[in-house]
């Protein structure tokens, strides 16, 4: 099912891309310059990378650049319910930036009274959510920016094609493939740099911190209900693994002792056999000596 979804969503993105050009060329005046029509269509695609449009599910034309974000979202969802979707519109996202500091101050107010611990736990939870939200917004913004640059790179490639005298692009597919090449180039240049490494790290680490806090809250609740917590099960697993490791080590040592014992037994048997054959040899020799009359002894009978 997942594969069907992938095939369909990629198809949608490609359709929207082709459709943008078909419309642009159709709507243009007969004497309009093809380069201008093309650039106009590319400008439409570029606009789809504005933050509010990036978050619009109906925006399929810039879909190529939303797939990595969607893929992260799916992965984050699999890690638990805590995954937060990017804020639905730009104004909310901007508001988050403006109110972040005052909000953090409010959330840092010390807890008082009987419920102070759970209050502090919830405050911390809200803070961690904010941190993840901020990291997620920054990550999305970087993608929006790269998306815009991918269109500029595509325009550069088209220009270079003219100067190099390369073959004409006559299908939407050729143009789409060239956009994919341009996108990989722009992406590859950015993601190897320190800025992206930091963004990527923050995205993952803030989600993990949030999940960890959730886990602690859940563990507290399970203990309250007198049910086994994650921490307790981990302790059991750790002890089980330690015991198993010790058993395997002892087994290996025992095997080595058995092997040595077998080797010693073998050597002993060999020695015994050797001893026996030497004894037999000796006794045969002695028997031979006894049976042979001694020369020079005379009978006095």
């Amino acid at each position: 099912m997942d594969l069907f979804q992938r095939l369909l969503s990629q198809g949608n993105s490609f359709f929207a891309f082709g459709d943008t050009f078909a419309h642009a060329f159709e709507a243009a005046k007969p004497d309009a310059d093809a380069s201008e029509i093309l650039n106009g269509a590319l400008e439409i695609i570029k606009q789809s990378f504005e933050p509010e449009k990036m978050r619009d599910a109906a925006n399929t034309v810039g879909g190529l650049w939303t797939f990595p974000l969607e893929s992260w979202q799916r992965t984050a969802n699999l890690l638990g319910d805590s995954a937060i979707k990017p804020l639905p519109n730009a104004s909310l996202s901007d508001a988050l930036g403006v109110f972040q500091q005052p909000l953090e101050r409010v959330l840092s107010t010390p807890g008082l009274g009987y419920n102070r611990e759970s209050q502090e736990q919830l405050q911390q939870y809200a803070k961690l959510k904010l941190h993840y939200q901020k990291a997620s917004q920054a990550y999305s913004a970087a993608f929006a920016d790269m998306g815009k640059r991918s269109i500029e790179r595509l325009q550069d490639h088209i220009k270079q094609r003219t100067t190099k005298g390369e073959s004409l692009i006559t299908s939407a597919r050729q143009l789409y493939d060239l956009w994919i090449d341009s996108s990989e180039e722009v992406y590859g240049e950015f993601v190897i740099g320190e800025e992206f490494v930091q963004l990527h790290g923050k995205l993952t680490n803030t989600l993990m911190a949030l999940k960890q806090h959730e886990g602690r809250m859940l563990d507290d609740y399970l203990e309250f209900l007198n049910l086994p917590s994650r921490g307790e099960i981990d302790t059991l697993h750790r002890r089980f693994r330690d015991s198993r490791r010790e058993t395997k080590t002892l087994q290996a040592q025992l095997n080595a002792v058995v092997e040595r014992f077998k080797a010693l037994q073998k050597a002993l048997r060999r020695m015994e056999k050797q001893n026996k054959s030497e004894k037999a040899k000796k006794s045969r020799k002695n028997a031979g000596r006894k049976a042979k009359p001694k020369s020079g002894r005379k009978s006095h009978s």
Partner: peptide
């Protein structure tokens, strides 16, 4: 001359072909 020569009718046909193949 622009190196991109897309004709709307051809692009539409291309999309239809793609949709048929996908289906």
């Amino acid at each position: 001359m622009s190196p991109v020569q897309l004709r709307p009718d051809r692009v539409t046909q291309e999309m239809l072909n793609y949709a048929r193949k996908l289906g």
